[in-house]
Design a protein around this nucleic acid. Structure first.
Lengths: 207, 207
DNA sequence: GTCTATATAGGGATAGAC
DNA sequence: GTCTATCCCTATATAGAC
């Protein structure tokens, strides 16, 4: 708890927003992303992360105040990209027609940042815990948004279930894709998944 | 490692296959199912399980040789039900048409045993670890089966992606359903999800 | 079948040297 | 910025009494 929350670090390192910084901080995040995904957040120790980077466990604490802070930083990145696909959604006025466009953008975001999405797909419990503790910015949270939409009784149940299915189809297929379709170009895969999602949201027999 | 692997227990308890036994062993499994789902396998300690049951941590070791054995036992139940939906599938001869029937059965199995499916949806990493260590009966494993089907180059890529999407739609919607559609009867929910899955596998414009 | 007490290990985190 | 050494805590698991 000694460092400031997130992003503010000592020394002359590049700003958090700038790209292509290969600072130690970045390398820690990269390895953590890998290990958290493979072995899970809880099963991954700071020792293992440090080992891969060639230095000791304690060194990590210069860059992050806690293990949880590493996860939080990765979570922030997910939000960053998630917002790109979900900006300006009104939970009250949602419809399958609008959902088509949203899911299209989501497919692109997932394909562009697959490891990040896989990480959180495989560590839902750790994510939940994060949300329960720190509810900063929880309003703009992706999950909460979906909850609002899918629980909205103004929308026909059938449509809500379809939206849940479409979301599941997109997430499921793209998360599986790394193992199942490793050689398929992202563009091709994205097009196929989008088509499938469209058929869920707006089946041929509907208005 | 003192007890025999699974199911063989001392004393006059009912056979593992018999239903409605409310033995301590069963109660441990029930509580573990709850806690593993809510807080995750790794974050749940045997102390917490014992606390809920009103006895001490050590007592659990009379019924299970290890914490992992509890998870294994729950995993076996999942397989039991999974097999019901996936019996006699030939990975080589799979098609969207056949997948429709399989997914229909899978929807029923999930709706009938939702907590179990949610457990493993939320604890994929723990499950993976299980599979890596004990590969007994891994052949009849659900995940391995899907891998074989979805990686089979004999099947058109489009169809394989559709199957992955349909699976994701079913799993996603039904896992979300506990929170999103708690009041919807299973039969109604199942019908809606099946319809959606059908539209993914066999969209109106196809043969 | 359940208890208390304990062995053993490993985790996250801190202090202070370099 | 990274190190070693250490603290403290909690976890799984075992031993042996009841």
């Amino acid at each position: 708890m000694s460092q400031t929350g997130t992003g503010t670090q000592p020394g002359p390192g590049p700003e958090p927003g700038s790209a292509e910084e290969s600072s130690t901080r970045e390398r820690i995040l990269d390895i953590a992303l890998e290990l958290f995904t493979e072995r899970g957040y809880e099963r991954t120790s700071l020792r293992q992360i440090a080992e891969r980077l060639g230095f000791s466990k304690a060194a990590i604490y210069y860059h992050f105040a806690s293990k949880e802070d590493i996860l939080i930083e990765l979570h922030l990145r997910l939000h960053e990209f998630g917002r790109g696909a979900l900006s300006g959604i009104d939970p009250a006025g949602m419809s399958p027609e609008l959902a088509v466009g949203i899911l299209d953008r989501l497919v692109d975001q997932i394909l562009g940042h697959r490891p990040l999405f896989v990480l959180f797909e495989r560590n839902q419990v750790a994510l939940d815990e994060l949300h329960r503790l720190r509810h900063d910015a929880a309003h703009e949270d992706v999950e909460a948004l979906f909850q609002q939409v899918l629980s909205n009784p103004e929308i026909a149940l059938r449509d809500r279930v379809r939206m849940a299915c479409a979301l599941g189809a997109v997430m499921g297929a793209l998360v599986l894709s790394e193992k199942m379709f490793p050689d398929v170009p992202s563009a091709e895969l994205g097009a196929l998944v989008r088509d499938a999602a469209h058929d869920v949201l707006m089946p041929a027999g509907s208005a």
